[in-house]
Design a protein around this nucleic acid. Structure first.
Lengths: 210, 210
DNA sequence: CAAAAATATTGGTCGGACCTAAAAATTCTC
DNA sequence: GAGAATTTTTAGGTCCGACCAATATTTTTG
């Protein structure tokens, strides 16, 4: 089985990530060293670095998902649906299933981010990659016809709205909003208003043709 | 004279910044160490760090201006003028006077940014601070009446547009667009389109009352 | 000019990122 | 299943940016 090796790798990766998260929550991000993590996980420092090239990656392990979902949503939008409508629909669906992707971290996580410049910087990078991926998807969606700047402007506005919503979600989580149902329905209401603001500019942008 | 010391400080600051810029252009950002800069400027490493806490500050010495101008523009908008209109007017005025603030760096600078992850990260931070300052100005402008999220959404959209325009300016500079007149008039045309996109959503947001 | 205040320097520590060579573990091949 | 090939992990080290404490120097003020 060529999968035994793969399973072990995932296992050690998981162990390292888990141990690191525990240490971060316990002592803070900056005050936890890679050496600490390596020792606690029972591996060498270099192994930690091999799995997680930058220290911040130990924290934002699910960043890829956040980066990709808006672009994927646009790429898979239904016939007759605009990019904005697809993203709005996907966002509201995520609130229905109470997806942590929207920024509903554990309070401990939210606090770590708020307290660490390095983590906030990494988060900005994630948002940026999300926007770039979205711009690429929109460029693909509208074809070579439209102006070159339009997809980037549209991506920037969509991503900016998503980012504000995510920051608000983190902020509310920090402010100790405990009831998940209330949290997510509140978020859905905000998102409705936010996306409606974009409607006049983007309501019929990148509508998928039959 | 309490100003002689001040002048000397500005002098050494200027010297360090100038020397650093030369070394960056010559060898690249990451390949230039703070020790190199200190030695070339004839000061100690710690002196460099005192004037420029982070290495990236040696490069983005005028970041404050970029961070503040949109917020200041909104705060000083004319009676009957919306935030969007004020920013559009200020942007077009900047193209008239061919202000480097809009992203018209020397080609060497633009290349350094493109090649350095650390500089791009710092640039993201600048954009973020620009947006936060703008959000604060808008919150101030609309008073306690409006929803809490609206100013942040408006700031995010305005800042996103400015950022795309600035990236485009950097990109065109890199692509060796030499004629300043053509460059800035092209930028003005793009900006016109970009701001017009925001018109339906923000055209009457934060209009200054008499 | 002497005392006080602000600034610069020296000489360190620390930690994250990176590298190389070698050892260990796993998979592939016969 | 043994040995070869490949991949993963380790050990030990360098480099550099960020930071700190104590000292020295310069500037300002009385």
């Amino acid at each position: 089985m060529t999968q035994l090796r793969e399973r072990k790798k995932q296992q050690t990766r998981q162990t390292i990530s888990h141990v690191a998260t525990g240490l971060f929550i316990e002592h803070g991000f900056e005050r936890t060293t890679i050496a600490d993590i390596a020792e606690a996980a029972g591996v060498s420092k270099m192994t930690v670095t091999n799995y997680f090239p930058r220290k911040e990656d130990l924290f934002f392990d699910a960043a890829d998902m956040v980066v990709r979902w808006p672009a994927r949503t646009v790429a898979e939008r239904e016939i007759g649906e605009s990019a904005l409508a697809a993203i709005r629909r996907a966002y509201l669906a995520a609130t229905e299933r109470q997806d942590p992707l929207l920024g509903r971290f554990a309070p401990g996580f939210a606090r770590l981010i708020a307290d660490s410049p390095a983590l906030r910087s990494r988060l900005r990078e994630v948002y940026d990659q999300q926007e770039q991926a979205l711009a690429a998807a929109l460029t693909e969606a509208v074809g070579p016809g439209g102006g070159l700047l339009e997809p980037r402007l549209a991506a920037a506005q969509l991503a900016a709205t998503l980012r504000v919503l995510m920051e608000e979600a983190r902020h509310r989580t920090l402010a100790d909003e405990r009831d998940d149902d209330a949290f997510f329905s509140g978020l859905a209401a905000l998102a409705g208003q936010a996306f409606t603001l974009l409607e006049p500019a983007l309501g019929d942008y990148a509508v998928r043709s039959a």
